[in-house]
């Protein structure tokens, strides 16, 4: 097998990405104004707020590397502040995340401090995957009673049984929507249909690095309060949580962000090498 430039680049990138993650190296991330705004908004919500937050996990295994840390950080923040939240999705491949992520975060928090114990049904509810997509969003926004609209959670438990549903009577009882996705077009659906002429919940978005330019369109027009710019945004959000809760020992995003930052430095380095190579090639041709 011929060893080409491609193989060298791939090996270098693999080393840069994997070493920090394997060795658990993490550095303080670059500050992100967009993640700051998302953090400040959730931090401003009163502790034990009666209004709930809808957390939409519209991502699958492909984008879970970036969206999963974002989801865990948001849920952790909401759990710390005892703000009730409902997890749901318009994407079928996210159903395992809807079940596992809040449980993992609750377990981690309980390990940190037993007084931070959070329970399903009291602190969060899993509404499951909405198979009718935007049609369901429209009817949900218009509905005056979500309990009779949705009827049961993912386990088939009638929603009236769950104390947390007191915070999710209808759209007006929802303070905000946190929508995390790597898919194109999904966030636009939530933005367009999860509101009425009388009321629009505050929207926070979490995207992958590829769709950051798209998300900036909504951010600069004020349609979203803040957003996670991929793993870098998640890392800065985690830094803000660490500053607010110094006893925190968890690491959801910062070591991955460190790995990607080394890989990006490597990309700059190989671009410079590539340009030097091209320049030397030109010189050689000219001298010939």
């Amino acid at each position: 097998m011929k060893f080409t430039d491609r193989h060298v680049v791939f090996i270098l990138v693999a080393i840069c990405l994997s070493v920090p993650i394997v060795m658990g190296i993490s550095t303080v991330p670059a500050p992100m104004k967009t993640a700051n705004k998302a953090f400040d908004y959730i931090e401003s919500l009163p502790e034990g707020d009666s209004k709930g937050v809808v957390v939409a996990l519209d991502f699958g295994p492909g984008t879970s590397a970036e969206n999963k840390p974002q989801a865990k950080l948001v849920m952790e923040h909401l759990m710390r502040k005892r703000i009730p939240f409902a997890v749901t999705s318009l994407y079928v491949l996210s159903t395992p995340f809807l079940k596992d992520l809040p449980q993992q975060v609750a377990k981690d928090l309980e390990k940190e401090n037993p007084s931070l114990k959070r329970e399903y049904g009291r602190d969060w509810v899993n509404l499951g995957y909405f198979q009718n997509g935007t049609i369901f969003l429209q009817s949900l926004a218009r509905s005056e009673d979500w309990i009779s609209q949705i009827k049961a959670d993912v386990n088939g438990t009638p929603l009236e049984q769950l104390p947390v549903m007191k915070s999710f009577k209808n759209l007006k009882s929802v303070s905000s929507l946190v929508e995390l996705t790597g898919l194109t077009g999904v966030f636009s659906s939530w933005l367009q249909f999860f509101q009425t002429t009388e009321y629009t919940p505050v929207m926070i978005h979490g995207c992958t690095s590829i769709t950051i330019p798209d998300a900036f369109i909504f951010f600069s027009s004020g349609q979203i309060r803040g957003f996670f710019e991929g793993i870098a945004g998640a890392a800065w959000y985690e830094e803000r949580i660490k500053q607010s809760y110094p006893q925190r020992v968890l690491n959801y995003a910062q070591s991955v962000n460190t790995g990607t930052s080394f890989a990006q430095l490597m990309i700059i380095f190989i671009i410079i090498i590539g340009n030097i190579k091209t320049y030397l090639g030109w010189r050689k041709k000219r001298s010939e």
Partner: peptide
């Protein structure tokens, strides 16, 4: 799930190589 995540992770390598190849 691992296959999906692996396919997506190919992007990291492809982006790096595309950047090296075309940023002149």
């Amino acid at each position: 799930f691992p296959l999906g995540a692996s396919m997506f992770s190919l992007l990291a390598f492809y982006i790096s190589y595309a950047a090296y190849r075309s940023f002149r």
